[in-house]
Amino acid sequence: MNQPAITVANERRELTSFWAGDQEYCVDIMSVREIRGWSAATPLPQSPSYMRGVINLRGAVLPIMDLAERLDLPPTEPSERSVIIVVQVGERLVGLLVDAVSDILSINPEQIQPTPDVGCDQAKAFVRGLITIDDRMVSEIAVERLLPELESLAA
C-alpha cells in the first residue's frame, strides 16, 4: 500500500482534522486530494450501508463512505454543510462523508500515542493513534483500512 504517511523522526507532520459523529478525527494531509461539498450520491446495490454510493468527480466514479457509520457511530445525516474529503488510498480515491472540517494540525510524531485497548473493534481497526492538542483528543484514521477492499473477492 502506497501510504504517503512515512514518518521520519523529528519531522513535523501535518494532518487535516474534521468532525464525524461528534468526535474529532484526522488524516495525513498528504493523502487528502480535495475537499468538496456534499452532493447526492447514486446508491450502490448490495453494498454495506456505510457506502453511501458514488458521485462524479470530474469524470471519475468516486465511492462515498460515511465515516461515522464505518466507525459504528450513528449514520451522518447529509446536509448543506456536510463535507466530502477526497482521500487517496493506494491507487484509489475514496470520498469520506464527514460533518465539517475543523483544523490543520502540525505535530511532532512523538505527539501521537498508540491506540489504547478499547472495547470497540471498529475503533481499534481504523484508528492509527491518538493526538492530544490542549484538551482536545484527535484520532488519526488509518485510511488504508477503511475500504472493504478486495476482501470480499478473496472470501
Binding site: A40, A41, T42, L44, P45, Q46, S47, M51, G53, V54, I55, N56, G59, A60, V61, L62, P63, R92, L93, V94, L147, P148, E149, L150, S152, L153
Partner: peptide
C-alpha cells in the same frame, strides 16, 4: 467501478449522465 471501488453484483459499470450524476 473497480478503479476506485470494486465489483458490485448485478452492476457491470457506471456512467455519467448529462446532468453530471452517476
Amino acid at each position: 467501478l473497480e478503479s476506485n471501488y470494486q465489483q458490485v453484483p448485478g452492476i457491470a459499470a457506471a456512467t455519467i449522465l448529462g446532468d453530471g450524476r452517476v
